[in-house]
């Protein structure tokens, strides 16, 4: 796993509960209330998906449910 692009600011928005999610079989620490799109980059996951035509790596873009 690479160095995460983001770090958590003094637990703002945290409801307290740490939890483990699995991405491609890999255990990742997340917080209750995280969106998946926020939890993965916070844990250092950079490549989320392969493009439908080129299979190029891709990751979340707008974080607002538009893209």
């Amino acid at each position: 796993m690479e160095r995460p692009l983001f770090r958590r600011l003094i637990d703002v928005g945290e409801t307290g509960a740490k939890l483990t999610i699995y991405f491609e079989g890999q255990a990742i620490e997340a917080r209750a209330g995280d969106t998946v799109a926020a939890a993965l980059p916070a844990a250092g996951i950079r490549d989320f998906r392969a493009g439908p035509a080129s299979a190029a790596p891709g990751s979340p873009f707008c974080m607002a449910g538009a893209c």
């Binding site: 958590r8 928005g13 917080r31 989320f48 974080m63 607002a64």
Partner: peptide, 20 residues
Amino acid sequence: PGVMTAGAGQTLLKNPGLLP
């Protein structure tokens, strides 16, 4: 990967509180 919108950066800051 690593290219996002400014709005996305701000969204991640507002909730759940992520800073680049």
